[in-house]
Design a protein around this nucleic acid. Structure first.
Lengths: 158, 158
DNA sequence: TTAAATGCAAAGCTTTTGCAATACT
DNA sequence: AGTATTGCAAAAGCTTTGCATTTAA
C-alpha cells in the first residue's frame, strides 16, 4: 500500500538563510532579490506578484513587476517559493516551509480555508481509487462551497 | 446524513430544443446564437470561446468573440451551457447534458481524464469530512498527475 | 416599435518577452 | 571582465466593456 508522502521541501528560516541557499545554487543576490525575500518573510499570507510590487513600493523600493515575476519563477525553480491559484485571480506566492499548507476556496463567499497537507490524504486516496490520478491541491486548490454557504448562512465583512 | 446530490441540470438534445428553451426564457434567437448552438452540438469536446470563433469562421460564419463570450455567458445563466478551467488556459465550454462529466487534468502530459460525476462522490465526501467544504470539480477540476486509465474512462487531448 | 443583441474598437488584467543598460561575482 | 539580472516598453493571452448600429419579436 502506498501512502501519500508529503514532500517536506526546502525550508529556510530567515532572509540570510535564503540568501545562502540561492548563492549555493549559483544564483546572484541582487538588491531587488534581497528586498523580495524580506517582504516574503514579512508577508503573513500568500501574495500576488502585483501585491509584492505594492508592498515593495510602499517600503520605498521600486522593483519592476517583470523582475518580480522573473525572480519568483527563479525562486520557485529552486524550491524556495511556491505559488497556487484561487479560482480566477492572480497566482499567489509564498515561501516554502513558511506556508506549506493546502487551500480550499469558497466560490460563493471567497473564504479561503487553510489545512495542513495530510488532512486531505483520504480525499487524495479516494481520487486515486476513482481515477488513478494523484491529485495535487498545491497548485490548483480545491474549489467549492464552504460549509456555511452550503448551509445557506450568509456572512459579510465590512 | 446528507448525500451528495447530482444536479441533473438542463438537458436539450438538439439545436431546435435549445432554441425553444431559450425562447421560453424570453431570450431572442439570433443568427449568431443559432450558429453557436449548432457548433456546440457538433463539437466533440469542450471548446474555448476562441476555438468556437475559429470553427464558426471556418464554416463561413463570422461571429465576433465579444458576442461569443456574451452569448456563452447568457447560455450559461440559463443552465444550457457550462464552462470550466483546465489549469491555466482559457475557459472551456460545453452544453449541459451533452457533456455533464467531471475532469481531471494532468499537469505533466496535459491529458484530460473524463469521469462521470458520481465517480468522485467518495472524494467529495472525504473532503467534506476533512473541511466542511462541498467540493465542486465542475468549474475548477482536479489537477494532478495522471495514472493509468480506469475502465469506462474516456480521455481527450487539447 | 423597442429592447435585445451585434460588431467594432478599446481597454483590463495577469503574465511574458526583447533588449539595452546595470551590477553582481 | 563577463554574464546574470534589471528596467522599460511592448506584447501576448484571455476576457470585458462602451457605444453606435442592427435585428428579433
Amino acid at each position: 500500500m502506498t501512502v501519500a508522502q508529503h514532500d517536506p521541501g526546502v525550508s529556510v528560516g530567515s532572509v540570510e538563510e535564503a540568501i545562502s541557499f540561492l548563492r549555493a545554487r549559483g544564483m546572484r543576490v541582487s538588491v531587488p532579490r534581497r528586498l523580495m525575500l524580506s517582504t516574503l518573510f514579512a508577508a503573513e499570507a500568500p501574495i500576488s506578484a502585483e501585491g509584492l510590487a505594492g508592498l515593495l513600493k510602499a517600503s520605498g523600493a521600486d522593483v519592476d513587476v517583470a523582475s518580480i515575476y522573473r525572480n519568483l519563477e527563479a525562486f520557485e525553480r529552486t524550491g524556495l517559493v511556491r505559488h497556487f491559484h484561487l479560482g480566477h485571480g492572480p497566482g499567489l506566492y509564498s515561501l516554502v516551509g513558511h506556508d506549506d499548507r493546502e487551500y480550499l476556496y469558497c466560490e460563493r463567499c471567497h473564504e479561503v480555508l487553510v489545512v495542513s497537507g495530510d488532512r486531505l490524504a483520504a480525499a487524495r486516496e479516494a481520487i486515486r481509487a476513482a481515477s488513478g490520478y494523484e491529485a495535487r491541491f498545491t497548485h490548483f486548490p480545491i474549489v467549492g462551497v464552504c460549509g456555511r454557504c452550503a448551509d445557506g448562512v450568509t456572512t459579510f465583512r465590512l
